[in-house]
């Protein structure tokens, strides 16, 4: 199976997005736009859970597509297009996290309001649900709780979860995207799912809001 996957032209035949990317390599602007339309929301969806806010996630998404465009001449169809693309997403997110950590080191300690923005789940939920009808409020509250639960994962676990859950990637594809072994992915996902279960269990069982994870924002170090 693995040897079949490495066959030259294999992905070109099987993956229409690989064919589009090959057109981009030949400076076809329409093909690039088509690829963007197909993938931008998927990339943004992943980066939204890795970046501190939507605006930062949008900037990173644009950075991803700029990199895709810059790398077009050296593109070779050695894997599925989505695997190649999310490898870039992973690198962009990792770089951004490192830069953020460097900036944080050179700045004063975070203000209490900053901590609330990242980890104060209850304040966050109250702020978003204060003036809404109860059913809508419950839905919004649940989303915020799930979103906040993801911040309990370290960035590598979160990346593995997002690729597995949202992109439906196999362990092998996640391993290729993140540049780790399949057994490492298995371990990352197992720990992540156990953490999610532990954090969300009180909410599932009794409707209680889980404890907040102060100081563990999306860019929290590994």
């Amino acid at each position: 199976m693995a040897s079949q996957d490495r066959e030259p032209g294999r992905y070109e035949l099987r993956d229409p997005d690989v064919r589009l990317m090959l057109q981009v390599r030949d400076d076809d602007a329409a093909a690039f736009e088509e690829l963007m339309l197909r993938y931008q929301h998927r990339v943004l969806r992943v980066l939204e859970h890795l970046a501190p806010n939507r605006s930062e996630a949008e900037d990173l998404t644009q950075e991803v597509f700029l990199r895709v465009f810059r790398a077009r001449k050296s593109y070779t169809p050695d894997s599925k297009f989505s695997t190649w693309l999310f490898t870039i997403v992973h690198r962009v997110a990792s770089n951004a996290r490192r830069n953020q950590a460097r900036r944080r080191e050179s700045q004063l300690p975070a203000t209490p309001s900053g901590q609330v923005a990242h980890g104060g789940m209850e304040q966050l939920v109250q702020a978003t649900t204060g003036s809404m009808p109860s059913r809508v409020m419950a839905k919004v509250e649940m989303r915020e709780i799930v979103r906040a639960a993801l911040t309990h994962l370290n960035p590598r676990q979160r990346m593995a979860v997002l690729l597995n859950k949202f992109e439906g990637m196999s362990y092998a594809d996640i391993a290729e995207t993140m540049g780790v072994s399949v057994s490492a992915v298995k371990s990352l996902l197992s720990r992540a799912r156990v953490t999610l279960k532990d954090v969300l269990e009180p909410y599932l069982a009794q409707g209680r809001r889980p404890r907040s994870e102060n100081g563990s924002g999306p860019w929290s170090p590994l």
Partner: peptide
């Protein structure tokens, strides 16, 4: 329990990308 907590991730909102975002990215390129 593992399944139930995993299924909760489906409640996360879908990400919408407006035309402005696509246009800005294309302009950047």
């Amino acid at each position: 329990k593992l399944e139930a907590s995993w299924d909760l991730l489906d409640e996360l909102p879908q990400t919408h990308v407006d035309e402005r975002f696509t246009r800005t990215t294309v302009e950047l390129v």
